[in-house]
Simulated assay, not measured.
Amino acid sequence: MLIRSCRIPPLLLLLILFLALLGWQLSQGTAHEEGPVGSEVVPLGEGGVPAPRIAIMTFVTDQRSYLHLSLKNKDHYARRHGYDLIVDYESHTERSVVYWKFDMVDRLVKTGKYDWLWWLDFDTLITNTDTKVTDIIEEELRNMTNPDQIDHLVTHDCNGFNGGSFIVRAHPRSLKFFRDSMDISDKAKAKDIQMSEQDAMAKLMKDDKESASRVHVVEQWKLNAFPQEIACYDETRKGWEHGTFVLHFAGAWAHVKGEDPTGQLMKKYENDIMWGDWKEFY
């Protein structure tokens, strides 16, 4: 019997080798440059202690003349210090839109990703991005006898509590404060009394001693400064000046004439923002 040698065409041989190599790669699973889940680098503070995990919260549900500036400013600050910026663009609360901040707090606390949440109204500018909000938290709690029991850092203006800038400990214990505030609002609504979220929070702090004991009042200029055009200051009587941390144009419509009072003030004070060097964190 004559046996002929079997000769494989070169192209077919290359195809077989390619398929064999592809099969081997697929059998190894997907490769990742990142480390395993949970291996992310945790920023360290002074003394090698993990830095507090911070989320800055705000929302905007309609078009504004200062939309870009407000978002850019908060995003820039968050990038500079390694914080998260959480912005909602829709509100789905059955209450007034201002109550949506309560839903945001509830949602972010339940993630377990943060130590503190900093709420900022959209009509604000962080005018000194050098300042770390964690330094303010540490400074305010340092000399308190019960710092671990303080869940809320708030400010007042000339009318009392102002909810434009406040800090919440991201702990399940904090959520009771906002649930109780909503209960106050619901009871008022049952009597045909419309109450803002700020008024509900203020009433809770006034009427409930236990809730009030978990609140620390920060001097207004440190966390929620008003410009000279809106001279509604707390008892320190200190308004915004160049180098101050945060500028809030609260109720600009009642103090500044024009079709766009807040936008006008935003534009006026934009050049006073201390941005820092974007090359260090972009």
Rank of each mutant, 00 (worst) to 15 (best):
R4T: 13
R4G: 06
C6V: 13
L11K: 13
L12A: 14
L12E: 12
L13E: 11
L15F: 09
I16G: 06
A20R: 06
Q25H: 11
L26C: 08
S27T: 14
H32C: 09
E33G: 11
E34I: 05
P36W: 04
P36Q: 06
G38D: 10
G38W: 07
E40H: 09
P43T: 06
P43N: 04
G47N: 13
V49K: 15
V49E: 15
P50I: 00
R53V: 03
R53F: 01
A55Y: 01
A55E: 01
M57W: 02
M57G: 03
F59Y: 15
D62K: 13
D62S: 13
Y66T: 01
Y66S: 06
L67N: 03
L69I: 05
L71C: 05
L71P: 00
L71K: 09
Y77G: 04
G82R: 08
D84T: 12
Y89P: 00
S91K: 04
S96L: 09
V97Y: 02
V97E: 07
W100E: 08
K101W: 10
K101V: 12
F102R: 09
F102C: 09
F102E: 05
D103R: 14
D106F: 06
R107P: 00
R107T: 12
L108N: 12
K110Y: 02
Y114W: 04
L120V: 08
L120Y: 04
F122G: 02
L125C: 05
T129D: 07
T129E: 15
D130A: 10
T131S: 01
T131P: 00
I137L: 08
E139Q: 13
L141H: 08
R142S: 07
M144H: 15
N146P: 02
P147W: 06
D148M: 03
I150E: 10
L153I: 15
H156M: 07
F161G: 07
S165K: 12
F166H: 13
V168L: 06
R169S: 07
R169M: 04
R169I: 00
H171R: 14
P172D: 14
L175C: 05
D180W: 07
I184K: 05
S185G: 07
A188N: 14
A188I: 11
A190H: 10
I193W: 01
M195T: 15
S196C: 10
Q198I: 07
K206I: 01
D207H: 01
D207A: 10
E210G: 01
E210C: 02
S211C: 13
A212Q: 13
V218A: 05
E219W: 01
Q220W: 04
W221C: 05
W221H: 14
N224H: 08
Q228N: 15
R237E: 07
R237Y: 02
E241T: 15
T244K: 08
H248I: 09
E259R: 11
E259T: 07
E259N: 11
P261V: 00
T262D: 00
T262Y: 00
G263V: 04
G263Y: 05
W275M: 15
W275H: 15
W278G: 00
F281Y: 14
